[in-house]
Nucleic acid binder design. Structure first.
Lengths: 105, 105
DNA sequence: CGGAATACATCATATCACGAGGTATCAAGA
DNA sequence: TCTTGATACCTCGTGATATGATGTATTCCG
């Protein structure tokens, strides 16, 4: 998978991974594995950015002696997913242009 | 349109713009305008990269006193477009995951 | 005991799009 | 003639980004 193409869906993928129920870093990676593999450093960068953008909020929980940070999607986060859907329609237009058959006459 | 999403298609769009017939910078921008707007600085960066990646070759032509550099797609360039098609299939899978309805039971 | 799994974090690096700015020619109109 | 806008190219600096490498600490299991 091309790196640039990948970048376009990373943030939204992470949001989608927590949209049904709160989750934490390590679990997000495991859940996304069949869809899209991402490293820890990549994920934590994304989570940080999403938090700064107020698309999710964080809650630290002590779990079996280890720290766990649960991420909860906000309304802004849901909106981001909705916006993505419209952007995808635009992308489909671009896709059609790219794969359009050659015109030899 | 989200900047990251855009990035994923920029290179391939430029290749698509020359896949049917050779073209030059200024014309590529005009042709792509209805599909995707891009500035000159962006385009020339992309053309340079595509040339370095041997996806197109350049031919300088004197035209009405002005210089014109015609870009011609190579086999590697066509392959890049083909690869993009497969990548798009992967992307559709990711898209489905993202927009999948919430499961409340 | 020891290593794998769990769980977090930071830093340096490389890649990239883009605005700002630059050069030069030609056509059209004031 | 002078100026403006279109044509046509190019470069540099900046900010954003993903990722590998690396580090810390705990728990589980053989």
């Amino acid at each position: 998978m091309d790196a640039q193409l990948r970048r376009g869906v990373l943030d939204v993928c992470v949001l989608a991974a927590i949209k049904n129920e709160d989750s934490y870093g390590y679990k997000i990676i495991k859940d996304l594995k069949p869809i899209l593999e991402l490293s820890e450093s990549t994920l934590y960068t994304i989570l940080k950015r999403l938090e700064e953008g107020k698309m999710l909020i964080v809650r630290s929980v002590e779990f079996e002696g280890r720290l766990r940070k649960y991420y909860h999607i906000t309304d802004l986060g849901h909106k981001r997913i909705e916006d993505f859907k419209s952007e995808w329609k635009e992308m489909m237009g671009i896709y059609s242009f790219i794969v359009e058959e050659n015109r030899y006459e």
